[in-house]
């Protein structure tokens, strides 16, 4: 093996690049072939139409229950996105607190909500909380929505809180000290100096979590929340048709997550403090 050679022990940069391209092509072709087979199956395999287009058209009609489910997850997403980010600020601040009690409680909170599955949390809230009441005496008669909002908020506040903590801890301590030395209180320094900068650092992680939040709404199907997966299960059990409702549900999720992901990327670029140097 030559010391001056361009090739390392495994592969040269050029070989690596070609391998990467080849792998990407293979994946793209496989996916393309799969989609073609799926959407054109009626033409490819005689008598075997995987997507029932008639049913798909029916399910996509404006009067379809799928829109209600779609609006429901949009609403619960928007509401819990705002609430979990706001609560996340307090979780993040608790995590960096110098008061051991506050920091300890915040840590336990995060450990619990990151350390147990969301499915467990939603069940604990929806089935567990009413169990404290005598049968028939639980006062909230439409508990599905409150349970969904509370569970999603508690869970995702833990993640945004950690993202924000990371954003705060990546700042030089001099920022806080400079602000305090000017006479700002801890709260003033946090609000005006630390948090605005920490936010920018945290935007990619928080944005990533919001995308996961959209997908977590699917787990609400276990508490009879009328969302898209329940709609799919319903159609499937009625019609024994998998692909028509699957295609519809997939498209519905992507109409939320694709724009959201573009928004997160854009916000991440705008927020990147290193871009401040540009005029």
């Amino acid at each position: 093996m030559s010391e001056t050679g361009t090739g390392g022990p495994i592969a040269s940069d050029e070989t690596f690049r070609r391998l990467g391209m080849a792998a990407a092509l293979v994946v793209a072709l496989s996916v393309g072939a799969f989609l073609a087979l799926l959407f054109l199956s009626g033409h490819v395999i005689p008598g075997r139409q995987l997507i029932n287009y008639g049913l798909l058209a029916e399910l996509a009609q404006p009067s379809s229950d799928y829109y209600g489910a779609y609006i429901n997850i949009l609403q619960v997403f928007l509401l819990t996105a705002v609430m979990s980010v706001i609560c996340g600020v307090f979780v993040g601040l608790g995590r960096i607190s110098k008061t051991p009690l506050t920091a300890g409680i915040a840590r336990l909170y995060v450990e619990f909500f990151r350390g147990t599955p969301f499915l467990f949390q939603i069940m604990a809230i929806y089935y567990g909380v009413p169990a404290f009441f005598e049968p028939g005496t639980f006062p909230l008669t439409n508990f599905t929505w409150p349970a969904a909002i509370v569970a999603l908020t508690l869970n995702h506040a833990a993640y945004s809180g950690e993202a924000l903590r990371g954003g705060i801890e990546s700042l030089p301590t001099g920022q806080m000290e400079a602000a305090r030395s000017l006479g700002m209180s801890y709260v003033q320094a946090m609000r005006n100096v630390v948090l605005p900068q920490a936010w920018r650092n945290a935007v990619p992680a928080v944005g990533n979590d919001l995308i996961i939040l959209v997908k977590d709404t699917s787990l609400l199907s276990v508490i009879a929340f009328p969302e898209l997966i329940s709609q799919f299960q319903y159609t499937y059990s009625q019609q024994f048709e998998a692909w028509a409702p699957l295609v519809l549900v997939g498209v519905f999720y992507l109409t939320i997550t694709v724009p959201l992901s573009a928004l997160v990327n854009y916000a991440g670029e705008v927020a990147d403090p290193s871009r401040r140097a540009e005029p």
């Binding site: 089935y127 009413p130 028939g136 006062p139 008669t141 508990f143 009879a224 299960q233």
Partner: peptide, 18 residues
Amino acid sequence: VSRYDSSASAFNAVLNNQ
């Protein structure tokens, strides 16, 4: 119509006023 994964959950919904 509220659709649950199991019959136990459906009965719980009644006991819990859902």
